[in-house]
């Protein structure tokens, strides 16, 4: 598919998914009322539901989906490994430990978000420092350091769950599975997503080369060391932002870049924006389902991303690479 039509199609799908998220729920808001509500008119309960409940959450889902997909593409290139995802270097583990500690202490949403951001950034600094060490900063060393630190966080998480009082457990488990029900301030995430995309698009062709190894990239004129540093910092910060808002929502960051590589190839000039839009669509649909599928009870959105993503991905894998 040609790049521009594909991006336009994905953009339209994003808008449709967003509108769907605004309409569907315990009270259905008809599509005919949406324009009036969104442009500041309309009234009553529908207006409040859309503007105060559904729109912030839908925009948060859109932003988090985009952030995770973008970070996933970058992590895969940074580590030269198609199995990498945004969480592989332990950023979500660090965030989870922070968030769970805040939840144990009975912290409010803001405290939980702050603690998870601190945990994510702390983990990022820790992994970077350890991977740097005395030796060479190779993708393998970075990957191993991150995986081991992530395993360490996993042990701490299990410990916290084991000692947590009964009444705190549901909230902690929801956080771990990824949940957007407390995401009511989408603006920072949207800004970070826009910034992340703006910073990575100029590097798109460099990423094509770095994906084929640092030597090949260097031989073709890429300054590898600053590029890798930028990738690490950017991917980590995007992941930290996503995890702070939505918890560790699985699957989006691994599967969306993969699906897009299968569908459109590995040119990052197309892959980066297409992944952002596809991640946004996937998470918007998954979160809409999470709110409605067994309403009035809500599911953690992470369960839905896996339930939607697994069959979709397996189908594409069966179909094979594009002709």
């Amino acid at each position: 598919m040609r790049p521009l039509p594909l991006l336009i199609a994905l953009g339209l799908l994003t808008v449709l998914a967003l509108l769907l998220a605004l309409m569907v729920g315990s009270i259905t808001v008809p599509a005919s009322e949406l324009p009036a509500i969104l442009f500041g008119e309309g009234s009553g309960i529908h207006r409040d539901i859309v503007l105060q409940l559904r729109l912030p959450r839908a925009l948060a889902a859109l932003a988090v989906g985009g952030l995770l997909a973008l970070a996933g593409v970058q992590m895969q290139v940074l580590l030269g490994n198609p199995l990498a995802d945004p969480y592989i270097l332990g950023i979500s583990g660090g965030a989870a430990v922070g968030a769970l500690l805040a939840l144990l202490a009975g912290g409010a949403t803001l405290a939980v978000n702050g603690a998870s951001l601190a945990g994510a950034l702390g983990s990022m600094v820790l992994v970077f420092g350890l991977a740097h060490g005395r030796g060479v900063w190779s993708p393998t060393r970075l990957l191993l350091t991150g995986v081991v630190v992530a395993a360490g966080w996993g042990a701490v998480i299990s410990f916290l769950l084991a000692v947590a009082p009964q009444q705190n457990l549901p909230g902690m488990l929801f956080w771990l599975m990824g949940d957007l029900s407390h995401a009511d301030r989408p603006l920072p995430a949207l800004l970070i997503l826009a910034l992340g995309l703006l910073l990575s698009l100029p590097q798109a062709r460099n990423l094509n080369l770095l994906a084929r190894g640092e030597l090949q990239a260097g031989a073709l004129g890429v300054s590898v060391v600053p590029l890798r540093l930028q990738l690490y910092l950017l991917a980590s910060l995007l992941t930290a932002a996503a995890v702070t808002i939505g918890g560790s929502i699985g699957f989006v960051g691994l599967v969306v870049p993969h699906m897009l590589r299968l569908l459109v190839g590995s040119d990052h000039r197309l892959l980066l924006p297409a992944s952002v839009l596809s991640g946004a669509i996937l998470l918007l649909l998954a979160d809409t389902l999470a709110r409605t599928v067994i309403a009035p009870q809500q599911l953690p959105v992470g369960v839905l991303t896996a339930l939607v993503g697994v069959p979709l991905f397996l189908y594409l894998l069966q179909r094979g690479y594009r002709a």
């Binding site: 490994n81 094509n208 994906a211 084929r212 031989a219 073709l220 890429v222 590995s266």
Partner: peptide, 22 residues
């Protein structure tokens, strides 16, 4: 290079075109 390394699926055309990068 002695060995080439392509962990991600790319087409022959895209790969050859990467020589134009600099």
């Amino acid at each position: 290079l002695q060995e080439s390394h392509d962990p991600f699926p790319t087409s022959v055309l895209e790969t050859a075109m990467s020589g134009r990068h600099p």
